[in-house]
């Protein structure tokens, strides 16, 4: 990993982390901008495949940044990206943790939370849109995406089933 890439990871993901609401998936559009549009580190389809790889593994969704970091800097890039994405906000959360008892249940906090949740949900939907665009190389993947949307939306089964279903369709038809 070159020094340039190191700082691109630190500054890029560090900046994203400071405005992230709603977790790893909601910031995916911004990660897409960084790794696909700004730096051209990977193609649209590669981005979608790496997200799929991360999604097939357990753990916090935000870990997908590790795969983007890995792509440009191996294990060092992975750790750099994950730390850049998590350390600044973790320190902030630690600071707030000491105030938690005083903050819990406060009206303005509930209002702020309720006001931010729709933004997070909108950003999650935007992530889905971007991923769908990256993975829709024909009508079969588009149908898989549509089917998976309905499956997750309308049923309460674990989403792992539909990821496994996607794997089977991919192996047989793509």
């Amino acid at each position: 990993m070159t020094a340039t890439v190191f700082w691109q990871l630190v500054l890029g993901f560090g900046a994203i982390s400071l405005v992230s609401v709603g977790g790893g998936i909601a910031v995916l559009p911004e990660m897409h901008r960084l790794v696909v549009e700004v730096h051209g580190w990977m193609s649209d389809a590669d981005f979608a495949r790496r997200f799929a790889l991360a999604q097939a593994a357990p753990g916090p969704n935000v870990l997908v940044v590790g795969l983007f970091g890995w792509h440009v800097g191996g294990i060092g890039g992975m750790l750099t990206a994950v730390l850049a994405m998590t350390l600044p906000t973790s320190l902030m959360a630690f600071g707030f943790s000491r105030l938690r008892a005083r903050l819990a249940g406060k009206m303005w906090l509930r209002i702020a939370e309720r006001g931010l949740v729709p933004i997070a949900v909108g950003l999650i939907a935007a992530s889905g849109l971007i991923l769908a665009r990256g993975s829709a190389t024909g009508w079969i993947p588009a149908l898989v995406t549509a089917g998976s949307t309905l499956f997750v939306w309308r049923t309460d089964y674990s989403p792992l089933w539909i990821l496994a279903g996607g794997a089977v369709v991919g192996a047989l038809l793509l």
């Binding site: 389809a45 799929a52 939907a125 889905g128 991923l131 993975s135 794997a167």
Partner: peptide
Amino acid sequence: AGVAAAAAGMVIGT
């Protein structure tokens, strides 16, 4: 590619 298509739908469905 199949998992990616399903994951995209999973995110939209969520």
